[in-house]
């Protein structure tokens, strides 16, 4: 963010001279967009908190049909979790390339991140399909409804993330996403890492600790 970075320094100095403090142009020093994303992610914590709690309450409740925990394929889910985890690495590399102004490389890493995310989603689709084949539909029992809603919501979040990544790639390819807007990539990255962290929680709480 070359231009703005220069401005920020100048502004920060101007501000410091004015009121005798070391603040940036904004009071917190974070841009509005970044702070807004952080606040939004704070809100998302409670959404997933509620979903996870609902699942924990219902994980053993089934009048009919199998429980999710009877059907887990832990090795398979471990692999897809690993894939999602690696996508955070590629996301970091994308942000770093964007900051350095290597837009081509940034696009490559963004595409890589999106593909890893898509692989995870494909794994989830496969998992859901095999669970349904084994007799656990969405409405079969309480545990199934809670399980599909929780993991489905997470899947939707990953999908939204993939769409954002694809949009970034398109913007970048059309020359609308230069080095000066590296923060946009970083903000999408914040969202992506958040969704990743949530999956680590879900994988641990829902799949591993049963």
């Amino acid at each position: 963010m070359a231009d703005t970075a220069t401005h920020d320094v100048t502004l920060g100095e101007a501000f410091a001279a004015e009121v005798g403090s070391g603040h940036h142009a904004t009071n917190t020093g974070y841009t509005n967009e970044k702070l807004g994303m952080w606040v939004f992610l704070g809100s998302e914590c409670l959404l997933f908190g509620g979903l996870i709690t609902t699942y924990l309450l219902y994980q053993d409740r089934a009048v009919e049909g199998p429980l999710p925990k009877d059907l887990y394929d832990i090795p398979f889910t471990s692999v897809s979790s690993f894939v999602l985890l690696m996508s955070s690495l590629t996301m970091v590399l994308a942000v770093s390339s964007q900051v350095q102004g290597d837009l081509r490389r940034a696009r490559t890493w963004l595409v890589g991140t999106a593909l890893l995310g898509a692989t995870f989603i494909a794994g989830q689709v496969y998992e859901f399909t095999s669970f349904v084949k084994e007799g656990m539909g969405y409405t079969t029992n309480l545990a199934a409804s809670a399980f599909y809603t929780l993991t489905g919501f997470h899947g939707v979040h990953v999908t939204v993330g993939i769409i954002m990544l694809a949009s970034l790639v398109a913007l970048s390819a059309s020359g609308r996403l230069g080095q000066d807007r590296a923060e946009t990539v970083e903000i999408v990255g914040l969202y992506w890492h958040f969704v990743d962290v949530v999956w680590i929680l879900i994988f641990t709480i829902v799949y591993l600790i049963t």
Binding site: S43, G50, R61, S145, T149
Partner: peptide, 30 residues
């Protein structure tokens, strides 16, 4: 910021139960 996601979640559970027969609040299903 922190209260709305909770009602959002509750409303979504209710919506899914009413529209798609999900099981969240039906005592007969436990």
């Amino acid at each position: 910021v922190f209260a709305l996601p909770v009602i959002t979640l509750a409303l979504i559970l209710l919506l899914f139960e009413r529209l798609y027969d999900a099981q969240f609040f039906n005592p007969e299903a436990g």
